[in-house]
Simulated assay, not measured.
Amino acid sequence: MTYQQELVNGLGVSISLALLTFALGLPGGLLLAVASFNRAKAVRILAVVFVEVGRGTPALVMLQLVYYGLPVTLTAFLSAAIALSLTTAAYTSEIIRGGLRGVPAGEIEAADALGLRAFHTMRDVVVPQGLRIALPPLLGFCIIMFQATTLAFTIAVPELMAQAKSIASSNFHYFNLFLIAGLLYALITIPASIFTDRVADKLARHT
């Protein structure tokens, strides 16, 4: 297998890790954001504690804690996905919560006037509009978390950075290989950033 193929395979692992992180972390962030509005004080406190711990713990530390600290044996890939998902959930919960708070009070009052229960108001009125408001910053954060998958090399996940470092350790072309790795990341992040900007502009015009 050529070095080029190893790098492409590493990029595939990075993308897979990022997608699994989003699949787990974004719903978690939504649940935490909704929980922060719960009428039960204990639920709100638990949500706040989880968010503050998740935001206060560096992603690199979270990776080590999940990989080495859990009482069950997990693969490096799954450990990385869980750790990055926890970080994603903590940060995106604040983004989503800001979006939920941005829903006009008149919309909520109208739902109350129609006799909707609090659960249905949240599910059918607040959450859909709040997610629309939060979408651009959520997409921007997803780009950041894709870049954060590079941290997974510290627990031996064969993602792009790990592959580049492994190859460089054998031929000592560190600069060239890290430059190529950076360009491969850019092939993903630059179009994603342009897409995020267009989504933000479209939503702003619609608003």
Rank of each mutant, 00 (worst) to 15 (best):
L63G: 12
P158E: 09
M161F: 11
E107V: 13
L63R: 10
V48W: 12
M122G: 07
L19R: 01
E52N: 08
F195C: 06
V126M: 11
L187Y: 05
D112G: 11
F141A: 10
L86Y: 09
S85P: 07
L100W: 13
Y67D: 07
E159Y: 10
H206D: 13
Y91C: 11
F146C: 01
K165D: 14
M122L: 14
V53M: 04
A164Q: 00
A134T: 06
I144S: 10
A200P: 08
I167L: 13
T196V: 08
Q129F: 10
G10K: 09
A162D: 01
S169Q: 03
L177Q: 10
L177P: 03
I188V: 15
S36F: 06
P191L: 12
L46T: 03
A89E: 10
A33V: 00
P58A: 04
S166I: 08
P191E: 01
I144H: 01
T121Y: 10
A42S: 00
L20C: 02
F172N: 10
T154Q: 12
A118C: 02
S166V: 03
A164F: 13
V61F: 03
L70I: 00
M145V: 14
V103L: 15
N38K: 14
L30Y: 06
I144W: 08
R132F: 02
A110M: 10
S79M: 04
E107A: 15
A90C: 06
S14L: 12
I108N: 12
S16W: 03
Y91N: 06
I95Q: 00
L11H: 13
S93Q: 01
F195Y: 13
L184I: 14
T87W: 00
T75N: 09
R205A: 09
G182M: 10
L31Q: 04
N9F: 04
G56D: 04
R117T: 14
Q64H: 14
T196Q: 09
A113L: 13
I82V: 09
V13R: 02
Q163T: 05
G25Q: 02
N38C: 12
L151A: 01
L183F: 14
F146Q: 09
L183W: 13
P128W: 05
F146A: 03
E109G: 13
L187I: 09
T2E: 13
R132D: 01
G102C: 14
K165Y: 11
L17P: 03
Q64I: 14
Q147H: 13
V127P: 04
N171F: 06
T88M: 15
A113H: 00
T88E: 12
H173L: 14
P71W: 09
L74D: 12
Q147W: 05
A164G: 00
V127Q: 01
I15R: 00
I95D: 11
H173Y: 11
M1P: 03
A47I: 04
T88D: 00
V103N: 09
A81N: 09
L138W: 02
R97G: 08
L184P: 01
D201S: 07
A113K: 12
M161Q: 03
A204L: 04
Q129R: 12
